[in-house]
Design a protein around this nucleic acid. Structure first.
Length: 378
RNA sequence: GCGCAGGUGUCAGAGUGGUCAAAUGAAGGAGACUGUAAAUCUCCCGCCUAUACGGCUACGAAGGUUCGAAUCCUUCCCUGCGCA
């Protein structure tokens, strides 16, 4: 089980400072949650991940079910023992894959709408590659194409075998091009699955319910009220978040105002650095995102002066560290020149160094935000 | 000197009479990425431009054959290997 203690509530916003206690230690919130989809922070050892200041990781039910399979992990003593990660851990339910392997993949879009596409998902529409049924989803394995079925019952069973500290109810993450009627129907499904998830939940792990509702105010509120009234230990906020930054804060406030105040809230799959303060001010306690890790593998470093693309030749002549003020071990020891060279030469160290720095920087950034809440500035 | 093989865009390397500014890589350039099918993906990459199924210049050099040549012929230059 977990417990969540709110240490301070901001007078200026919905932001709050807290401590999330889990069987594997405490998390100072607000906290950034690095993603370890397959039971690894890509490019890093867990020892390194700890040194970046990572407090809590999120792994993925769908992907671990496919490979190596939850039975293997259970036999190895659960995810913590299997991986050697000894700090708090959560597993996502596979709900995001309903989107990413469904409409998301089909339409070639993420959950943040970049440009008007003219596409619209209407009530009754189904993605081509997967089928969303009453009790779950017929997936196709991205590895070998085999059919598999995951619903709330399956997801919870898998997550119980994996044994993370916090698990999630199975949900449908909706597309930014889903229309009102589709989204309305979808939250009915997500709500039904939430109750089913609770029904099949037998372990002592904490379980979070997931709020959906797309960009529609009444649906977000309805979903928050419904999920918030169920006996979950905390709440995930998922789905699309509109096509501009203001919209996200707006949508989060609709949701947060209708969730129980004393329970932790996790914003699923957001954010960029610039999303953090708005999300935290909207009352979010934890949030995960693949950005620092994936972008690192694509050559991008996040710094106080913006993003740097280390694949550019210009950095070969740059003696500076990635970020002059950063105290991380990468910035203390390496130049942009060297890291750029490694990246361009496709040395895997480049990914390690960039991933380390990015995670350190993200964690540091949230740490600063915690200080701002503490000192009453946010 | 003789024999053999060969000289293609920044590089490597296809192409052996038209559909060739020339496959494919690489290098180079630009962009994307928000609960990870992502060490991935997209675009540009001879020059000019009104950016188009446009113009120009190009496949070692110079001539030639042909309606048409990177592709065939002649000479020359150069490179590699072998033999003297």
């Amino acid at each position: 089980m977990i417990s969540f203690k709110i240490l301070k509530k901001s007078k200026k916003s919905r932001a709050r400072l807290g401590v999330l206690k889990t069987p594997h230690g405490e998390v100072q919130t607000p906290a950034f949650v690095p993603v370890a989809t397959l039971g690894a922070v890509k490019a890093l050892t867990f020892d390194s991940a700890r040194r970046t200041g990572a407090q809590l990781l999120i792994s993925n039910t769908f992907h671990l079910h496919l490979r190596p399979g939850e039975q293997i992990i259970k036999k190895m003593g659960g995810l913590h023992k299997f991986t050697s990660w000894d700090r708090p851990l959560m597993t996502d339910s596979g709900g995001f894959q309903v989107f990413s392997l469904g409409f998301g993949g089909e339409h070639g879009m993420g959950k943040i709408l970049k440009e008007k596409s003219g596409l619209q998902i209407k009530k009754g529409d189904q993605p081509k590659t997967i089928k969303i049924r009453e009790n779950g989803v017929e997936f196709r394995s991205p590895i070998n194409g085999e059919k598999l079925f995951i619903g709330p019952k399956e997801s919870i069973k898998i997550q119980e075998s994996l044994g993370a500290d916090i698990i999630y109810a199975f949900d449908e993450c909706t597309s930014p091009v889903a229309d009102y009627e589709y989204t309305k129907k979808s939250i009915e499904t997500t709500h039904r699955w939430a109750k089913e998830s609770l029904k099949h939940h037998k372990s002592k792990q904490a379980i979070y319910g997931v709020v959906q509702g797309g960009r529609f105010k009444d649906l977000r509120i309805e979903s928050a009220k419904f999920i918030g009234a169920l006996p979950f230990d905390g709440f995930g906020i998922g789905g699309e978040f509109g096509d501009d930054k203001k919209a996200m804060s707006q949508m989060l406030s609709w949701v947060v105002d209708n969730l129980p105040e004393e329970k932790p809230r996790h914003l699923l799959g957001i954010g960029y650095l610039e999303d953090m303060i708005p999300a935290i001010k909207s009352g979010v306690d934890t949030f995960d995102c693949i950005v620092p890790t994936r972008f690192a593998r694509h050559g991008i470093a996040f710094t106080r002066t913006g993003r740097l693309d280390l694949s550019k030749t210009i950095f070969l002549k740059d003696k500076n560290p990635l970020d002059k003020k950063c105290k991380c071990e990468v910035c203390k020891t390496h130049t942009r020149s060297y890291i750029s060279h490694l990246f361009r030469a496709k040395e895997i160290n480049a990914m390690e160094l960039l991933t380390f720095h990015n995670l350190y920087y993200f964690n540091e950034y949230v740490g600063e935000i915690r200080k701002l809440i503490k000192s009453g500035k946010i």
